[in-house]
Design a protein around this nucleic acid. Structure first.
Lengths: 224, 224
DNA sequence: CGCATAGTTCGTTCCTCATCGAAGCATCCC
DNA sequence: GGGATGCTTCGATGAGGAACGAACTATGCG
């Protein structure tokens, strides 16, 4: 009967299938409207609205009103990390997975994690950046190495105009079980990948599909 | 309406207050009997038994029968990690914390995380071991440095008789938000601390209280 | 064997909470 | 203004599941 932080409250918020679907959808990183989330969760609009209210009250979501739309998004990286952790356990524990599905393979290779790239590609990229000493692992934190600024400037990513949030962060990958790069730098790299059209987002999925030339370009820039 | 690993199933298991209390208690690392967990959760024995059945079926717990006792424990480090992640969010999100309570401070300083030490002390220890090059951070994994074997042998910890599980692992600390040492080595160090009576477990809490001489000994051995 | 302790199973009760339709606001467009 | 769209609130319904007492099984102790 001990009392710590109210973990049951948070977990039960994620514990409803409709809400879990919504959170999962939001792991894609883009904020979604209430109607989109209702569709995603497979419930009616009133039901979705009620769920969103609860998630807001629980502090898991933020909302931005734009005109008659309300865009809901995950409250922050910590929430995203928690969901990845739960996903990892569900993955490990669930022998129920009847269909490994084609999409599943793609998810393992590359997917969006909140606002940055995750999956084998992302893990390989971080490995390489550390190898090349562009980034330096120092405890949990990842820091910029001496050549970081010029390295990323050459690619077209400016490290100095990026505010507040830590530039680099490690984020544990549920499929590979190793770290990939998060933080504003991670987000900027994902932006770059999509802006250059090296890859596209699978509609309604977190999977990131590289085109053959896009994959080459990515490898040349980040894995060379 | 997408379908990934069944995160709602797992989260809803943790989402019941009684079960959350049980899991919290098991984060202490020692396996507990059904009656102890019933007490811990504040429910009757039949209710507890039902909950334990669900947690077992969900794969979050393991059980070992010894005579007429059944000892329940967390299914593994991944489950423990998930619970720490949820705790972190609950902590961050819950402004509801009316009583920071005296025990809370102790928990921040040092506590048990499944089978190893967590909290400020643990984070400081890992920092120091990496500084001294006894351990080497290499990606998410932590590896043994060249002097590790002799270093730990001198303290009385034999690294070679320890099987299967990785010797070192990083585990994210919810209070400090940095890594501390997990894995068999982390477990061995906690064993050492308790065996040498440098610290005692607060009854019915995860807090680890160092005695003044014990703290000195710990600092001499691990922080010097 | 008989009694005590540890756990599980069963059946019932009860309450929470997810769900949706209908109605109410808010915003945009014409 | 009026009509459309996006979203929330209200109220009623219903199902799932948490709770406990009582009865049952298993182990240990004399």
């Amino acid at each position: 009967m001990r009392e710590g932080p109210d973990i049951a409250r948070i977990a039960s918020l994620v514990g409803d299938p409709a809400r879990a679907n919504m959170l999962n959808a939001l792991m894609g990183g883009t904020a979604l409207t209430a109607s989109e989330l209702a569709l995603e969760a497979g419930v009616s609009l009133p039901t979705a609205s009620s769920h969103l209210g609860k998630l807001m009250e629980g502090g898991l979501l933020t909302v931005a009103s734009q005109g008659r739309h309300r865009y809901y998004g995950l409250a922050g990286p910590q929430v995203a990390g928690m969901i990845e952790a739960i996903t990892g356990v569900a993955e490990a524990v669930g022998p129920k997975r009847v269909r490994p599905g084609p999409r599943d393979g793609a998810m393992r290779v590359a997917r969006v994690c909140y606002d940055h790239l995750a999956g084998e590609q992302a893990v390989a990229m971080l490995d390489r950046l550390v190898d090349k000493n562009v980034l330096v692992r120092d405890e949990q934190e990842i820091r910029l190495g001496p050549s970081a600024a010029s390295h990323f400037a050459a690619i077209g990513i400016d490290l100095y105009t990026r505010p507040r949030r830590p530039v680099c962060r490690a984020c544990l990958d549920w499929s590979v079980r190793r770290s990939h790069l998060a933080g504003t730098l991670g987000a900027a790299i994902l932006d770059k990948i999509l802006a250059e059209k090296w890859a596209r987002r699978e509609t309604d999925s977190r999977a990131v599909i590289f085109s053959p030339p896009g994959k080459q370009a990515f490898e040349r820039v980040f894995l060379a």
